[in-house]
Design a protein around this nucleic acid. Sequence first.
DNA 1: CTGAAAGCGCTTACAG
DNA 2: CTGAAAGCGCTTACAG
Lengths: 328, 328
Amino acid sequence: MTLLDVASRAGVSAATASAVLSGKAGERIRVSSVKRDEILAAAKALGYVPNTAAQHLKSGDDNHIIAVFTYENIFPADPRSEYYPFFAGIQQEAEREGYDILILNNWAQDKSRSSRIRLASGAIMIGVNRDDEHITSLVKQEFPLVFVGRRKIGNGLPVHCVRFGYEIAVRAVVDRIAPYADRSLVYVSSTLSTAEPTEDKSTFLHRVCSEKGIAVSDVSVADSATPESIAAVLSSRAVIFDRLFIADIFTPIFQKEGMAIGRDVFGAILEDDWTGTHPGWTAWENRRMELGALAVKNLIAFLSGRDADTEEVVLPIVERASTGVLAE
Amino acid sequence: MTLLDVASRAGVSAATASAVLSGKAGERIRVSSVKRDEILAAAKALGYVPNTAAQHLKSGDDNHIIAVFTYENIFPADPRSEYYPFFAGIQQEAEREGYDILILNNWAQDKSRSSRIRLASGAIMIGVNRDDEHITSLVKQEFPLVFVGRRKIGNGLPVHCVRFGYEIAVRAVVDRIAPYADRSLVYVSSTLSTAEPTEDKSTFLHRVCSEKGIAVSDVSVADSATPESIAAVLSSRAVIFDRLFIADIFTPIFQKEGMAIGRDVFGAILEDDWTGTHPGWTAWENRRMELGALAVKNLIAFLSGRDADTEEVVLPIVERASTGVLAE
DNA sequence: CTGAAAGCGCTTACAG
DNA sequence: CTGAAAGCGCTTACAG
């Protein structure tokens, strides 16, 4: 059942049928209402369903498909995946905007599938990137691509990213924590976290503290505490952990010392992926869905030839189910 | 960057470039290794990414995209949706089989989007169907479509469905419950549940009981219990509720009577969508992900010209966190 | 071993 | 107001 079938049944040319069926009659092509009704009737009788791929091939228009892919081995459609909220935000915003979503499965295992991205008008990339020539090619050709998280591609190609507003959030965290110590704090990161968020958060923390005249002691651990790191952490009343799992390493140590969070030690965790409860800690809220949604907003802006309004999602600071000691 | 660009840079025809780039050199077209390397080099230098839509338009091959859509207003990408497990199973199985997924958002609101289904090689439909001419057209034209749940389209068009094996499961439930009563049981359904699962479960329950010589009293309620329905339910030691929400209507009544489930009344619920705990009840396990996965398996079979192995998912019977009274 | 041609289903200038 | 033609990017017979 092609357009030609409909056209010939209605006794018109393909051009006329095309205009009527795609709702463009009246624009550059005008069709009499009699012909129009005949075409519509023929389409209905034949059960004509247009071939959207062919339409798009010719017109080159935005086909209202957004591809989503990931560097992870498994696509994060499972709510237990830490990347799931990004996907959920993407799906929800796409739905709101009338876009469909193409989930590119198994891309990370089979790079030849990167060409499938061109089935969509643009794409969103989730996960920690590895420099990859397939993606670099797409970026070079200015295929509309938005990365979730700050990314660098090739040697500094211009690339669209959306990211969390870490700088403002880190500033708020420091303002909240620093008063409890004496113009100094300890910052604990892990040698296991080397991705872009850690890099950014560290940069911003040092910048903010230097502005405010607060000394920062950097402590680095792998997956467990060393005597040196313990001594450093216990030496300050204000501690900032880069990741939740790092805080979890030190929590038993505070307990052993009889120290309560929010009373004897004041601390923050620069991450939003809370699994249990961590009373008394300061952190920011989880805004992953919002970041996914922002990626879609920006991609749609590019597809429409507009510029993105913003590339940052604000992270509000929260007190985790406090013990009450910290409350002012 | 088209195939022609690559071909001309490599000094060959489009046909040769196509054969090499699509890995079909050697089949009907043989290419010297020198030319092959030149073509590959040109493609790499130019960052050529094939237009998958054009490839598929010409070849008509399975493009390894499965569309998923729903009659619901919101696509069930949210884990809180009762249809989410179907989607999760679909996504997971597609990933395993190397297929991508096109989420057709907002189809239920804008039926004109049904044509977008043809961007995929086949489609899976989630949710309670309404008879719809767009879908009927696709079925008539034998577009590969698999419905999750038993469905009827048009006036009896042949339609592919996957479904739960209700008949066997209902038989097992009856075998489990009936011994506690005297060759009779009460079956409570709701006038609010009229969809295909309720129809099937009721049919199978009556068939099974009639085979076994067990009398069934049918009780129907809307969203609350009536004096008549209460009397009927309390009259039997074996009660089967069609839906969880119906059981929840009667639970307080059992409590008021001081009756414990699994001791004074023996019962089953013919549904798997448990939210809280319902100790002592018999039911079947949630196999929604499996049903979603089966839909994908069958669709892929059709796309490959094979027949589906089975259209049913087995539902194992479980005792809900029993009070222990019922345990043998 | 390789190229020229036709065509997938559609849309968009361009003529009438 | 409507039709004939060209072409989107690709692949597949068909010739050489």
